[in-house]
Design a binder for these strands. Sequence first.
RNA 1: CGGGGCGUAGCUCAGCUUGGCUAGAGCGUUGCGUUCGGGACGCAAAGGCCGGAGGUUCGACUCCUCUCGCCCCGACCA
Length: 500
Amino acid sequence: MAGARITPRAQDYAQWYQDVVREGGLAEAAEVVRGCMVIKPHGYAVWEKMQADLDRRFKETGHQNAYFPLLIPLSVLAKEAQHVEGFAMECAVVTHSGLKAHDGKISVKNELEEPYVVRPTSETIIGHFFKKWIDSYRDLPMLLNQWANVMRWELRTRLFLRTGEFLWQEGHTAHATHAEAQEEVARMLDVYRDFAHEVMALPVIQGVKTENERFAGAVETRCIEALMQDGKALQAGTSHDLGQNFGKAFDVTFQNQQGAREHVWQTSWGVSTRLVGAVVMAHSDDDGLVLPPRLAPIHVVFVPIWKSDAEKAQVCEAAHKLAKELREDGLGVKVDDRDNLRPGDKYYEWERKGVPLRIELGPRDLAAGTVMAKRRIAPLDANGKAVKETLSMQDLGVAVGRILDEFQRFLYERALAFREANTVVVDTWDEFVAVFKGEGSKFVHAHWDGTGATEKAIKEATKATIRCLPYDGQGPALEPGRCIKTGAPSARRVLFAKNY
RNA sequence: CGGGGCGUAGCUCAGCUUGGCUAGAGCGUUGCGUUCGGGACGCAAAGGCCGGAGGUUCGACUCCUCUCGCCCCGACCA
């Protein structure tokens, strides 16, 4: 009997997602704090894996970490008009300091002269300091990154995908020329793509956002878009060309080599804990979480099998010895030697938590000098049972390393195949409507007349939005045509989908 | 923030319509024993401010009002 259940995807995708997050031990609702989440140890460990890899990539591309305040004076936030307008409704505002007790009740005490906004993002407070720190072309480029929490007062929340508070990194850079800033925007989007492909085993499409979807205060927003198992798109990362908008708003200038003063050209780029949700929705199945090895806090779990106490002592000793060897290879290894659960219970538990490889070690294996390995997702044999692999205890690390590499590649290939099977080119409105009917969604490449009005009309009719104008080569060949909705001339197809 | 649903043991829920014994079940947990290669079983035990606050009543898990939180659908957004 299953103690805990996971609703099948086919039955209720939203419920399935919640079940996987809960049973995987990733996070839960903060309950007493509306719209916020508690990231539990296993979920936080996945985020730490992401952080470690991304941080290395940021350093390799010349960036340094820094930290700016959580609170932004309202007057500072308001300096860039479009920016404050875009975030106005989502801002939490601090208006008081201190508490006082009266009649047995606690209330706030001193009203602040100027309210603080809890950062929804940090362009403005960083703009304030860029002005102070940048004076000469010799100070440029300034390449910073911040790991931080931000708060956006969301009305409807989902664990990892949309919460009131979330964790992220935000890169902020300043450059002497627009061309250099544009290179930075493209470079960091490539970093995100590589990370998604190599570490998350998640294929993504790079592209440019429409004006409607652009970051508030940017002149151009680029993104990586991933396809989830229900056919909806998830924006997995963004990179913004801020032009001179913030440079002008905060009067960030530098003296160029000719001695003239110019406003800097800035960029910002970020990914968030939302990526944990992306991994869940991209790879997991009805048995629970599936983690790509490069994000798995535990790569291998040993389940010793025994009947007698003597056998228990022997197999556990052997399991711990092998585990130690694997840990020396840099792997996360757990030996589940609990004696209050039977092996089958352990199998299910670690599968729900997404451990890529399970190794069973019993008396028969011990005698033969082998172990039984079972991948988190394994092919079925003729009897419908998952295939287990017999591995020699000799050089186990080599075999395990190979299996984990294969599994990492398998997940990417599977996700890519899924995306290809769920990507279509559509040239008629009837076909377009049919794709998005009901809960339906796919990646749809279709022509669009380039106007915001048409974009909105399509959204109202189908709930599908333009995810991006894909990079050349990441969609169908660029060719002119007629808008799917209005029939007006279109320079190229764009990528539509319902989205998270 | 509008519409709908739901808050009772760690988890999933019953009880509420029609107010009344001592608030229940399964799973899980703890202890002992038998088990152990895909979700075992026996015996014993612990575990509840019935989400919170007011109200109606002799009496409230049950009825009324308010409030907090979660889920779903909208509108808004990463």
